[in-house]
Amino acid sequence: MKKSNFIALTTLAVAFSVFAIWSLTTCDNVLQCYKHLPKWGISIVGTVFLLMLFIPNIIWGQNQPVGYEEAAKRESKKLLAFERAGEVLACAFVVSDRRLDNFSNFPRLGYAVLTLLLMMIYELYWLKYFRSSRTLSDMYSDYCGFPLAGASLPVFAVFLLGVYAQNLALITAAVILGIGHIGIHLMHKKEI
Score class of each variant (00 low, 15 high):
M1D: 09
K3N: 08
S4I: 14
T10P: 01
T10Y: 05
T11D: 04
T11F: 08
V14K: 03
V14G: 04
A15I: 15
F16V: 15
F16E: 10
F16D: 11
S17R: 08
F19D: 07
F19T: 12
A20M: 12
A20L: 14
W22K: 12
L24Q: 11
T25A: 12
C27N: 13
D28I: 15
D28F: 14
N29I: 15
N29K: 14
N29A: 14
Y34F: 14
K35C: 14
K35T: 15
H36T: 14
K39W: 05
K39L: 08
W40M: 06
I42C: 07
V45M: 01
T47W: 08
F49W: 03
I55N: 11
I55C: 10
P56S: 12
N57V: 15
I58Y: 11
I59Q: 10
G61F: 12
Q64I: 15
Q64Y: 12
Q64R: 15
Q64K: 15
G67M: 10
G67Y: 10
Y68I: 14
A71F: 11
A71S: 09
A72E: 09
A72K: 12
K78G: 12
K78F: 09
A81Q: 09
G86V: 12
G86N: 05
V88T: 10
F93C: 02
V94L: 03
V94E: 00
V95R: 00
S96T: 14
R99H: 07
L100F: 05
D101N: 04
F103L: 08
L109I: 11
L109E: 03
G110K: 03
A112Y: 05
A112D: 01
L114H: 02
L114C: 01
T115W: 01
L116E: 04
L116G: 04
L118A: 09
Y122R: 06
Y122C: 05
L124Q: 12
L124H: 06
Y125L: 05
L127G: 11
K128T: 15
F130N: 05
R131A: 14
L136I: 10
L136V: 07
D138G: 03
M139N: 13
Y143N: 03
G145I: 14
G145C: 08
F146D: 03
L148E: 02
A149D: 02
V155R: 00
V155T: 06
L161S: 01
L161E: 01
G162I: 14
V163S: 07
Y164H: 01
Y164A: 00
Y164F: 10
Q166N: 11
Q166D: 11
Q166H: 10
Q166E: 15
L170D: 03
I171N: 06
T172F: 14
T172P: 00
A174C: 07
G178P: 00
G178R: 04
I179N: 06
G180Y: 02
H181P: 01
H181S: 05
H181L: 06
I182M: 05
G183L: 13
K189Y: 07
I192C: 05
I192P: 00
